[in-house]
Design a protein around this nucleic acid. Structure first.
Length: 309
DNA sequence: AAGGAATACAACCGCCGCGCC
DNA sequence: GGGCGCGGCGGTTGTATTCCT
């Protein structure tokens, strides 16, 4: 396989020179045999079979015993992020996104801690999500993810939209009650006899509300029923603007985008455009300073030209 | 249709803490 | 107490895929 040849090539640093200082010939030979790069189906089967038979842990020993030419670390990573039963893949639901945003604001880059609150999600996935989606939009705002400006945008624009989306999804689910709604939102790769919502979002709802740690629990005050009945109420104490947004006509109109489940499919320009056009929403919004600097992605004019919903 | 840019994601690297000897 | 190995974590990189021009 061509890919394998590439990954195994010396230029990738896989084959260590046997004359490397401080490295014996045996060690060098062993190191040279180590594989790197994408895992093959055979390797996955070997690893999964071995872990099923002998359990996790002692990864270096495991790698040797299973006949895998991989480092213990590599085996551990592959197992935890991909092969482990219960690992969920595919786009994050609005609830998961909301939880990530909230927990990250509390804990920072504690990816494993955040992932622990998202059943089936790995720290690597959460981290990738943050880096690819969240940081991208921070860049679009011309600020850093750690800045107060981005924090304001997150709490006043993004999180309300997530709540809006969650509510719209739930309303549609309640109204339709039909499996076709769910299947439309289901990740294509997720083979399932159950509706995707039942597989993914529903457990998150309860897990968010009955969070597994006190810290996570505090992200959604009140009981699961109150959370589902009135998402805006959950934020009234921490963010009046957020709660206000929930009750605006935007929210009442629902969310109509073609749904992959990723709120980022709507750009910040669109969110800001809506905020700027809606007095009710813009009231209380911080000044994001768009147009003040030359390196912003959009001028204020560009933002105002965005279509309204 | 083709090429470049952007995005998404899997995998690796380096550091650190912990337990064991 | 110090060295060593292992596992865990966060950061970074490389590549496949998708999007855009």
């Amino acid at each position: 396989m061509e890919m394998e040849a590439l990954w195994m090539s010396p230029c990738r640093g896989i084959s260590l020179p046997s004359s490397a200082a401080g490295v014996g010939e045996d060690e060098a030979a062993a190191a040279a045999e180590l594989r790197r790069g994408p895992w093959t189906a055979e390797e996955d089967a070997l690893l999964a079979g071995y872990v099923a038979a002998h359990g996790e842990g002692r990864w270096n020993e495991l790698a040797l015993a299973a006949g895998l030419r991989r480092t213990g670390k590599s085996c551990r990573l592959r197992w935890l992020n991909y092969l482990r039963p219960g690992v969920r893949r595919g786009g994050f639901t609005p609830r998961e996104q909301l939880l990530i945003l909230d927990l990250h604001s509390r804990w920072g880059n504690r990816w494993s801690k955040i992932a622990a609150q998202l059943p089936g999600r790995t720290d690597n996935e959460v981290k990738n999500y943050w880096r690819t989606r969240v940081q991208k939009h921070a860049k679009q705002l011309g600020c850093d993810v750690g800045s107060g400006r981005f924090h304001d945008a997150m709490r006043n624009l993004w999180m309300p939209r997530l709540l809006e989306r969650i509510h719209a999804d739930e309303s549609a689910a309640a109204a339709a009650g039909a499996s076709h709604y769910y299947s439309a939102a289901s990740p294509a790769h997720e083979p399932s006899s159950k509706p995707a919502y039942q597989n993914a979002a529903a457990p998150i709802i309860s897990n968010c509300a009955r969070a597994t740690s006190p810290e996570a629990a505090s992200c959604v005050t009140g009981s699961p029923s109150s959370w589902e009945a009135s998402p805006a109420a959950q934020f009234q104490t921490s963010s009046p603007t957020m709660a206000a947004c929930w009750s605006t006509r935007q929210c009442q109109n629902g969310y109509s985008s073609a749904s992959s489940g990723d709120m980022f499919e709507e750009s910040w320009s669109e969110l800001l455009a809506r905020a700027n056009h809606d007095d009710a929403d813009s009231a209380g919004l911080p000044d994001f300073g768009l147009g003040e600097t030359g390196d912003n992605w959009w001028s204020l004019d560009d933002i105002l030209q965005q279509p309204l919903y």
